[in-house]
Design a protein around this nucleic acid. Structure first.
Lengths: 335, 335
DNA sequence: TTGTACGCGTTATCAC
DNA sequence: GTGATAACGCGTACAA
């Protein structure tokens, strides 16, 4: 390994000078700078990240703490984070906590021990417990996704209420009046917010909200299918379904098809998330796409406002999901 | 931040002793060890990873260099890697190179500068160019996935030939004789290997191989669908299709359905990879599952044989994908 | 068994 | 403009 000392020796200068060109400080003569640069190239010198980290008490690494790497939103989000970090010369250290408080605590400790410059964490505030200590240590944390709690941490959020409105209004505009809502229930924050949007859309279009049209189910195809069967068995069954997650929408497909009905002729379906599978099922699922890549990028942008201490008051960046109309929605049949 | 010095002061010992209990060295009296441990807990001491990294010239971090984070195999693979690393007290630094030689070179340099203990890279040997320098610097590299080239690097591989045999034999046992093969073509190493397996299975069952039954297409649903339409238009169309990737299998679904045929009644389909969507399409796709999580774990295991210098001769660990029979395969209709 | 002192590769603060 | 030199926090001989 070639060190700063080697460069200094070879260039006939001191390590101080080498360090100066390394960090592009002003006071160094063009001549010596050129020579040093030359020697560095010649010896293929790479400054040690660890040594720098020690001296600066801050490394060029950011932490990325995923709650669940298997979440379909994760890959693109991660790409956004990694891309943006790379652009700034930072690498990312990655954790998969599975919403396990113990793992999270552990990750927080490691992140601290590694002197990371900052942390991006797509987790809810309740789960922030130990990560919360990081800012006190001078390590900024920005979260991704919104929740209801007060904002103690800067966050990049999704306007889930608005998404609920958009999805529901799409159905309403097509002429639907009996629109079911599939949700994981009140424990799921994003679902609850989309539920708000759903109700808001109904209200503003003068459509009565009926609790019998909302189906709670687990985040599996099977569970959603079961629940949808019940919805379809109602005296006045829905002509459209808004599922708070694509997987549940696909479960709804099963139920509709098994009931001998057809999509979108008999019932329209719109999902949320735009997962890969939404483009692989038949018919192609109309859904809300969340710009995961941009979310990731924005989180890192925001993070660097804190790392570089250029943070304005803006502690929150909100994105709105967009409707992607595909094949699963159409006007209702005359009934 | 609390340092080793703080602990030493508070415990009334020297940093040398503290360091010894930190690394669980033998020669330290139980009494002092206990006291030091107590003080460490009291002050919530976390040894600095960077400082240790500098002193040891080796950090407790491994690099994970993904060729493409959007690849459906990635998340589970990554989880396997992260899990296993965590078990050994290591964190993982993550890169997404997109098969870009420049990004890869960059990642290799950073990994080196960060003194990572080792690198796991799910990439082909041709792409190993700059990563190849790492072992010379004392940083072991283990690759995931097999390719044809000579093994210069330890690797965790998939027996794709065997997978091809298994998938094809499943179809043969069901009674199929005209089995098509969907592939990205000879440029895709894994596909080529599965192709070998496909031919091998046909041969060993006395079925003539016909090149007209192999369809080359891109890794998209649409492309696979197009190609399958042609296959189905053959004078003697296939009664079964083995697609080298699930996405292509799903494309084949489209073609079959659009031809007014039904799966699996008129044509059986088996894919490869067991992606999420294979469990979301209808009918559920019969496919080969690759134990991605175990692959990731095995890669880290192997890596640590080199990190700990306990490497045996075994430089390769081969996994065989398993058949998952779902709904897309059945005996052919009498014809 | 325990303490001392040096080294790891950089950055930063002084002098010169 | 440039060169010493002291941190940074820890591991490790070597000495005590």
């Amino acid at each position: 390994m070639v060190t700063i000392q080697d460069i200094a020796d070879r260039a006939g200068v001191s390590i101080g000078t080498v360090s100066r060109v390394l960090n592009t400080k002003p006071d160094v003569s063009p001549t010596t700078r050129a020579r040093i640069l030359e020697v560095m190239a010649e010896l293929d010198y790479r400054p040690s990240g660890v040594a720098r980290g020690l001296a600066l008490k801050k490394s060029r690494v950011i932490g990325f703490l995923a709650a669940d790497i298997m979440n379909p939103n994760f890959p693109e989000l991660a790409r956004g984070v990694v891309d943006q970090a790379r652009l700034r010369g930072y690498s990312v250290m990655f954790f998969d906590t599975r919403r396990d408080i113990e793992m999270e605590r552990e990750a927080a400790h490691i992140l601290e021990a590694e002197h990371v410059a900052g942390v991006v964490a797509p987790i809810l505030e309740e789960e922030l417990e130990d990560l919360g200590r990081l800012p006190d240590e001078g390590i900024p944390v920005v979260r991704i996704y919104r929740d209801r709690s007060s904002l103690r941490t800067p966050i990049v959020a999704l306007d889930n209420v608005r998404a609920g409105v958009i999805a529901t209004e799409h159905l309403i505009r097509l002429g639907h009046r009996r629109i079911a809502f599939l949700t994981r229930g009140p424990t799921c924050v994003s679902d609850s917010e989309r539920f708000e949007g759903y109700k808001e859309a109904l209200r503003s279009h003068g459509i009565a909200y009926g609790p019998d049209l909302v189906g709670e189910c687990a985040l599996t195809r099977e569970s959603a299918a079961e629940r949808t069967i019940q919805l379809l068995a109602l005296p006045k069954p829905p002509t459209a379904i808004f599922a708070s997650k694509d997987v549940m929408a696909i479960g709804a497909y099963d139920a509709v098809l098994e009931s001998g009905l057809s999509i979108p002729r008999d019932v329209s379906v719109v999902g949320h998330d735009d997962i890969d599978a939404s483009r692989l099922v038949r018919p192609l699922l109309t859904t809300m796409t969340t710009h995961r890549h941009r979310l990731g990028e924005a989180a890192v942008d925001l993070l660097f406002q804190y790392i570089d201490n250029t943070a304005e008051k803006q502690e929150e960046r909100v994105f709105t999901a967009e409707l992607v109309i595909r094949e699963s929605t159409a006007p209702p049949q005359g009934d």
